[in-house]
Computed example of a mutant assay.
Amino acid sequence: MSNQAELDDYKQQIADWYSRRSSNYDNGDWHPRIAHRLVEYAQLRSGQQVLDIATGTGLVAIEAAQIVGDEGKVIGIDISTGMLEQARRKVKELQLSNVEFHLADAEALSFPANSFDCVFCSSALIWMSDLLASLRLWHHFLKPGGLLGFHAFADRAFVGGVVARKVLAKYGVSLLFNQPTGNVEKCRNLLQTAGFKAIDIQSEEDSSYISLEQAKGIWSNGLYPVPGQFPNPLLQLSPEKLAQARSEFDAELEALQTEQGIWNDITIFYAFGRKAA
């Protein structure tokens, strides 16, 4: 793989956005915790070959590499140079020799068929331009009996996004966010249609109270980029309408505030499917 990836405008926006976030992406324990749970559910074994899609700072890839050992190998791919810099720095500090990272588009990979025992996609499936085509491509890379695992989030997850979607719908703007994978049945149907068998989806709640400022944060970058939608659907609104919608968004969140903060539902689906043996 080359050190360059040919990205369309949509994916370049995503890459740039994650690169800007890369220095503090690992702050806190939430991302590491859910990455660990995804790997834990997969029950990797020594010697296995693993592909980590949208590897980010390498949270899944590094843990997988430590499990599969020197007889195994992990390849992590991402479109964000900033995130990959963080991943490579961590691998160097840990002196791991069985994991490598490449700048690559998850929807334009060219690995041989039947290359991997396991393919992961942590928290990134909804960013794909075509979810079903992506799953079919990754299915092709799996060995017979190989396992795919991804995170998805309920359509009610992340209060800022839920309120933004509700408010903007009144202005004729439809936001997808987590809706394509927003419940267990949707995740199951995607995996089945992509050809996966032995589907297993675990649902876990990781909800908590957050501050009003945190809840409003989703709008801090103008909801930009928007998962699975390009161009940004907010561009159809005039500046006046957008300001009005933002005011309504703020008011709705303020009405949800309690002494503890604002309840932020984060229901996570750990979705797995196997390639037929």
Rank of each mutant, 00 (worst) to 15 (best):
V60D: 14
A61H: 11
A61M: 07
A61I: 08
A64P: 07
A65P: 11
I67K: 12
I67E: 09
I67F: 06
V68C: 11
V68I: 15
G69M: 01
G69T: 02
E71W: 02
K73P: 12
V74Q: 11
G76W: 08
I77L: 06
D78S: 03
I79G: 14
I79K: 14
I79Q: 15
S80E: 13
T81G: 01
T81E: 09
G82E: 10
L84A: 01
E85M: 04
Q86T: 03
Q86M: 06
Q86N: 05
Q86A: 08
A87F: 06
R88T: 07
K90L: 09
V91R: 15
K92T: 06
L94P: 11
L94I: 12
L96V: 07
S97G: 11
S97V: 13
S97I: 10
N98A: 02
N98G: 05
E100C: 12
F101E: 06
D105T: 09
D105G: 05
A106V: 03
E107A: 08
A108F: 06
L109C: 15
L109H: 13
N114V: 08
N114C: 13
N114I: 06
S115W: 05
F120S: 05
F120C: 02
S123T: 01
A124F: 06
L125D: 09
I126Y: 03
M128L: 14
M128E: 12
S129Y: 05
D130P: 11
L132M: 13
A133V: 05
A133T: 10
A133I: 03
S134I: 04
L135T: 01
L135A: 00
W138G: 14
W138P: 14
H140C: 03
K143L: 03
P144H: 00
P144D: 01
P144M: 03
G145T: 02
G146L: 08
G146N: 03
L147T: 07
H151R: 08
A152R: 10
F153R: 00
A154I: 00
A154D: 11
D155H: 08
R156M: 04
A157W: 04
F158S: 02
G161P: 00
G161W: 01
G161H: 05
V162S: 09
V162F: 09
R165Y: 10
K166I: 01
L168N: 03
A169W: 12
K170L: 10
L175E: 02
F177I: 04
N178E: 01
N178V: 00
N178G: 00
N178Q: 03
Q179Y: 00
P180Q: 08
T181S: 09
G182P: 11
G182R: 10
N183L: 03
V184W: 08
C187V: 01
N189Q: 13
L190I: 12
Q192V: 13
T193I: 15
A194S: 07
A194F: 08
G195F: 11
G195V: 06
K197E: 10
A198L: 05
I199N: 03
I199Q: 09
I201H: 02
S203M: 13
E205H: 09
E205A: 12
